[in-house]
Design a protein around this nucleic acid. Structure first.
Lengths: 239, 239
DNA sequence: CGCGCTATTGAGAGAGCTCAATGTGCGTGG
DNA sequence: CCACGCACATTGAGCTCTCTCAATAGCGCG
């Protein structure tokens, strides 16, 4: 089942009927180990997964073995919902941490949408926010240097974690390695290391034991040229 | 009205009813001059536009004035369909060439979808392909050098133009400046110029008078590490 | 208590940038 | 019909951000 506090429910005006439909939906749970693929490029999935616990990422591997991470996924995300309409998956999806996911068949989802069209709209909106995040990454990779690009990623992750209630004050879990960050930002892990040191030196963040703490949100936001509009979340910003 | 050969109709299994609904839809036409904004960042549009003729681009401007182009749009595209569910537009949309666009109010589209759910799916799929293109750009910007990145853009544009019947043999119109390309690829126009010269020297393409000719598709594809799967178009590739 | 993964540091190299000048084609007005 | 202006393309030379290569350090876990 999908909990009533789920993002879908909170960010889209759903009625009682839709909430109930979600709450009684039978999810088939699976667990995955770190680095294990959930969906591989070229597959034709017959189901979608909801991340219940843990982090995942979409990625693509190039011929020389370089990896590009396309997005990070946190609890509440539906990272392969696009398979509902795009039969062949054009990238892979892997667990970053030990992960619990719930699966729903395409048929179930189609039925659900047919019966509750507003749920279809909510899911569509979810994929549109995904696309908005991609746009933001393109802006960063194309026109920002390494420091603001990293700062932007941290702002984004923090707000997304906050939206699903996984932050405490100014901290949240950030269970990814510097290599993961480098593959997401289009940098090398060596440079990521130096950029993180710089952010710490400027007392913008603390990051240790996979825990991120935002020490100065407004300065971090300024460095990143971060504007949360694109997350389309209507959230309050850390004090 | 929307022509029966439109991409929506060709790439999604629509029935007679849906085709008719599209064909009789009243579009309000407007024309735009090059560089004119169609939608600006921060607006709350009440309508969506269909590009009838000409090219457009989505873009974002940073504080220091740098521009990042997020996507190019050609006839048949619905470049701001996301406004249907994301009220505030997080980027701008501008005409590149003299442009003709047809407008449909959100209300009209919502009604259309309510009556013809498969049309809703087709539109959703369209936005998912948009997102797939964003992913591909992220891969290029993060992990490809300038030459393959440019080659990839040219492959992509050519296939998209082919999909709407705007190519002849191995050529198509490419009505964008080198500065536009640089703002899309995250390069400078100086470097774009040098990369294009390199592609011409290698006899992979010809590009003059805003006309692109693919001289050697398979080598260009190889240089770009181009795999058309992500366009989800089921198209044949140039000989 | 040692292996393996991740983080850190140093130093040299390079892809792409900046700045600036020059070339070229085309539309327009006199 | 030609001169002019303007946008775009091209070229050169020096510079820098980020990369590469390589070594060392730290830490968690079996």
């Amino acid at each position: 089942m999908i909990d009533a506090s789920h993002r879908l429910v909170r960010f889209f005006p759903l009625g009682e009927a839709e909430r109930n439909a979600l709450a009684t939906l039978p999810l088939i749970r699976h667990t995955f180990a770190p680095h294990q693929d959930i969906v591989q490029q070229g597959e034709r999935p017959g189901q979608c997964c909801l991340i219940v616990e843990g982090w995942a990422c979409r990625y693509r591997t190039l011929q020389q073995g370089e990896r590009q991470i396309l997005s990070f996924h946190i609890p509440g995300d539906l990272p392969d919902i696009q398979s509902l309409h795009l039969p062949v998956t054009d990238h892979s999806l892997a667990a970053i941490t030990p992960l619990t996911a719930g699966f729903l068949s395409h048929a179930q989802i189609h039925d659900l949408i047919a019966e509750h069209p507003r749920l279809g709209s909510a899911l569509w909106k979810d994929t549109l926010i995904d696309a908005a995040i991609y746009r933001e990454w393109i802006v960063g990779m194309g026109r920002k240097e390494a420091l603001p690009r990293m700062a932007h990623l941290l702002c984004e992750v923090f707000l997304r974690m906050q939206a699903v209630g996984l932050t405490t004050q100014h901290s949240c879990s950030l269970p990814i390695t510097q290599t993961d960050m480098s593959d997401a930002l289009g940098l090398t892990s060596v440079h990521v290391n130096r950029v993180l040191q710089d952010l710490r030196r400027q007392e913008l963040i603390a990051l240790e034991h996979r825990t991120l703490t935002i020490l100065d949100w407004s300065r971090l936001e300024a460095v990143a040229e971060f504007d949360p509009t694109y997350l389309h979340q209507n959230l309050s910003v850390p004090a």
